[in-house]
Structure formats: C-alpha cells, structure tokens
Design a protein around this nucleic acid. Structure first.
Lengths: 151, 151
DNA sequence: CTTGACCCTGTAGTGACTACAGGGTGTGTC
DNA sequence: GACACACCCTGTAGTCACTACAGGGTCAAG
C-alpha cells in the first residue's frame, strides 16, 4: 500500500505520516523501485494507535512513551496507567481554567449593551484595568493542554 | 521609565514587551541618549490592556482589532461585543470538547488496573483500535482556543 | 577600574503540523 | 509517441506567542 492509500484508510494526511516517520514514531517502510513508500498492515495499526492518542490530545512525547511499552511488552504497565492519570489531571485542570475564563468573559460582555460609541464602551474601559488576581492566567504554568486557540 | 521598570509594573517579561513592539501592538517609545526605550504612563496602560486580553486568551490579532476600536473611538462598539461573543463561543466549545475528552480518558483508564505486564494491558490494546466517532478530534476545526497542552 | 545590573539587536528554538517549490513516476487517452 | 493528470519524492519555510540565547553597549556603586 502506498502512502496515499494509508492516508485514506487512517484519515491522516500524507504530510503528517511523513512527519511521524521523521519524528521516529513510525518506522521507515520498504520502498518500491521508484522510491515510493510501501506500507503493510502493522504500519496502519501503529498509525491508528498514534492518531487515537492524538485524538486524546497526548503529546508526541507521551505517545512515544506508550509506543515504547507497546514495543517491549515484558514490562509491567503501571507506568502506562500513570501516564494516563497525569494526562487526565492536565485535562481536568484545563477545564477548570476555561470555566473561570468563561465567567470572566461573560462578566466582561455584560459591561456593554452596544448602544454607545467605543469611547464609552464598558468593555474597552474594563480591559484597560489590570486583570483581577483570581484569573489564573492560563499560560502561567504550561499545562500542555491547549486553551481556547487550537495550536 | 525604562523597559525593566515597565516590566515590573505590569508583570510582563521584558522580551515580551519588545515582541509586542515588533508586532505593532505597542508604539515605538522615545529613546534615551544611550538608545534605551523610555516609556510613559499611556504605554503602561496599553500594555495592561494587552495583558488583560491575553489573560482572557485572545489572540494577538483579536487584540489588535480591539486596540483599533480603542484608538478610533468615534465608531459604535457593536463589533467589540461581537468579538467577545465569538471568543466566548470558542471557549465554550473547547470546554465541551475537553469534557468529552475527560470521559474518554476515564473510560480508557478503567481498562487496566495495573496487575499485568504491558503485553496484556487493556489500555494499549484499546489505543490500537481506531478512535470512536463520537470523539470530536480536538484539532479538526481549529478553534483557536488551546486544548490540554498549553502552546 | 572593576563588578554587576541593566539595556540593545538579531537569530533560533518551541509543538505538531501545513504548505509550498521543484522535481520524478505511472496510467490512460489521443 | 505525446500529453495530461494524479500521485509520489525531498527539502525548506511558515504558523503562534513567545522564550532563550549570543554578543555587545551603558551606568552607578564601591
């Protein structure tokens, strides 16, 4: 199977597959006489593993760790549990931050009903004040779980 | 006031202040004879505005737009409201995604209690399957609100 | 006169891709 | 055989909002 077919089967863009190979997450596949990458079923499985992990918003580093356990199956898997637990804690912390953020934005939004011109707009006035201490400043401790703006 | 004092007063790192200037968010300040940047109170206010917006996780582009309204105050401020509303919608969408993610991670975590070695680990087995369709795949539509991994 | 804190510019790195540019390959049609 | 078109290759640069140097200048105190 060539790279395009693997991409179709897994829903992962071709460029991203090549990127995972460069990053060492996918092993280098065999090549055709024309230097095309040729994949077999184990590659597809491994790629699905990676994409599933990415859907769960793990970093490539975390995925590398999981793949290591997957590749050397004689070890106990407590570390796998620990990794998932840590990730879960990150996600929960981010949810709490975003909920605080939502409150702050809703309060801000209520400052202006849109009748006046922007020199009297309560939103712009409030933004010129320093932020209240209670807002955790979403990027203070990098939690590796993205906030509102994708990547 | 020199850049270090401005940084102290606003809690914004020196490097970031220079970065905002390069990005056109802060105007170029006066310079001392030694070519040091010299700031006055309006600069501090504008920087506090920017940092407050960043606390609310707006992009620099959104902040640029808000600063435009701030600088040309004769226009009605409906667009300000719209921008906040859009941002609020992004944040709410991200919260929902992260809550689905938390469920998926908790389910995954329950697959393994840590007694076995990793060749029988239910977590690793489940991750090798394609992700269920219900999971919205956090990066499909870039929402500009980060997920679990900071930036 | 030296130490140390501060300031300057410019460049490169972060994560996880994405988007070319510039070229080669393979299949079908005329 | 000539051409079109889809697919493949490598390598590089861009994204975002910073952060971290490298390599140098300035200034006040001791």
């Amino acid at each position: 199977m060539k790279i395009g077919e693997l991409a179709n089967r897994t829903g992962c863009p071709v460029e991203t597959i090549r990127y995972y190979e460069r990053e060492g997450l996918l092993p280098e596949p065999a090549r055709s006489s024309a230097n095309y990458r040729l994949y077999a079923e184990p590659h597809a499985e491994r790629l699905r593993f990676i994409r599933h992990c990415r859907t769960l918003d793990m970093t490539l580093d975390e995925i590398r760790t999981l793949l290591d356990y997957h590749d050397r199956p004689r070890q106990p898997c407590n570390a796998v549990n620990g990794l998932i637990d840590d990730h879960l804690a990150h996600v929960e912390a981010r949810i709490e931050q975003l909920q605080a953020l939502r409150e702050a934005l809703a309060t801000l939004r209520s400052r202006c009903q849109g009748e006046s011109d922007s020199s009297h707009c309560g939103i712009l006035q409030e933004l010129a004040q320093p932020a209240p201490r209670e807002l955790p400043a979403i990027h203070d401790e990098p939690s590796h779980v993205p906030g509102p703006h994708g990547h």
